Amino acid sequence: MHGRNIIKILRAIDLLSRPQGTTVTRLESELGVTRRSVYRLFETLDELGFPRFDEEVPGEKEKRWRLQEDYLHKLPNLRIPDMRLTGRELMVLHLLLASDRVFAGTAVEPLLCSIREKLASIMPGAYLSVAQSDRLESLFAAGTLHPALYHGKDEIIETLLDAVAERKVCTVRYEALGTGNEKSYLIHPLRLFQHDGGLYLFVQIPKHDSTRILSVERISEISISGETFVEPEPFDPDHILSHTFDLTLADPVTVTIRFTENAARRVRNRRWSATQQFHEHTDGSLTLEMTTSGSDDIVRWVLGFGGDAEIIKPAALRARIQEAISRLNATYPHTLFSVSPDKPASSG
């Protein structure tokens, strides 16, 4: 039996089970079907053994249909939710499903296609008609500009999905980003998540008793064992990610960064850290203070603003910026980059 028809049958049973019963007109309206389809549903219920009867109600033009009272006591308390999606719900669902470019060409892509097909089969009416789909396509664009490439990683991703779901211990070969060297690690895979066009994995490293984040694209081999593990407590991935600047898990650092008026427009309306505080200045510039982890990530971010951002403190990160500028001057000898060594924070 088609999934969409099952939902309609269950909703019809729900309406027929109510003390006041229901009318054919009400069934037409609630189920979004024709009068003829309602009577076909009645035939299906008869074949399934649901005893129904009709009764005249004084003052009403239409008969009411109900299930027999003694049969109702055998049924569970049926309350079928309304599966019809509003326009806004469809928009949000489409936006979520449209952010799947990171999984293109991987084992996850056919799973997403299967989810779409199953949603279409159980939703009353059209889940996404051609007109709706075209309309939604005109409202949203996939936002992942530079997704990681996972071609050839199908087996690794499938194994990770199973390992995370079943809490299985794994061994992986992993390439370090800084050196390019590969090492083997025994891991407890905790959570998969998507970030900035890439797929990442929270893991527990038993040898170091630490939680780390691995980039799936840098896993070259994986083997799953029959041994299971217990998730560490407390483990709150949302809390961890809200206190990292990018994805580097390290000791927290408190930074103060001054942005020019031009850069401030791009900074003030974003959430960079759960601890961030903005201080506006009369010249339109902005100071950001936050405690977060990932010093390397912060340095790269600030350098991306060029002369429109300056680390005021700590001194160690300011020195890192100066080192980077020295390397830039060596790379581009005919261009002078500079930063004042000991400029204090302005109060504005």
Rank of each mutant, 00 (worst) to 15 (best):
I156C: 02
G152W: 00
D154Y: 03
G180L: 15
Y185F: 15
A176P: 11
K183E: 13
E182K: 03
L199H: 02
Y174T: 09
G197S: 10
E166N: 09
K153R: 11
T179L: 03
Y185A: 12
E175G: 01
E155P: 02
D162V: 15
V169D: 03
H195S: 08
Y200W: 03
K183D: 14
A163S: 13
A163M: 01
Q194E: 15
T159N: 07
D154A: 09
E158G: 02
L160W: 01
H188I: 07
K183P: 00
A163C: 07
D162P: 02
S184P: 04
Q194T: 15
L160R: 00
R173N: 08
K153N: 11
Y185S: 04
R191T: 09
S184I: 13
R173D: 10
A176H: 15
H188R: 07
R191A: 02
H195W: 10
L149N: 13
E182I: 12
L145C: 08
P147G: 05
G180K: 04
Y174K: 03
E182V: 07
D162Y: 12
F193Y: 15
G198N: 09
R173H: 07
H188T: 04
Y200M: 08
Y150C: 06
K153D: 03
G180H: 06
E182H: 05
L190D: 02
H146E: 13
Y174R: 01
E175M: 10
L160K: 01
C170A: 14
R173I: 07
V172C: 04
H146W: 13
G178K: 09
H188A: 03
I187V: 14
G180P: 14
R167P: 00
K153M: 12
Q194S: 10
L145W: 14
A148Q: 12
V164N: 08
Q194K: 14
K153F: 11
F193K: 11
K168W: 06
R167Y: 02
V164F: 04
D154E: 13
E166I: 01
T171A: 04
Y150H: 11
G180Q: 03
L186M: 10
D196R: 12
S184C: 09
F193A: 13
P189M: 07
L145R: 12
P147W: 06
A165E: 10
H151W: 01
T159L: 04
V164C: 14
D196N: 13
F193T: 08
L149D: 15
L177F: 15
C170T: 06
L201S: 06
D162E: 14
R167S: 12
E166M: 11
G178T: 07
E155Q: 15
I157Q: 09
E182A: 11
L199Y: 03
K153T: 11
Y150A: 08
R191H: 07
E155Y: 12
L149W: 02
A163P: 09
V172P: 08
K183V: 08
G180V: 08
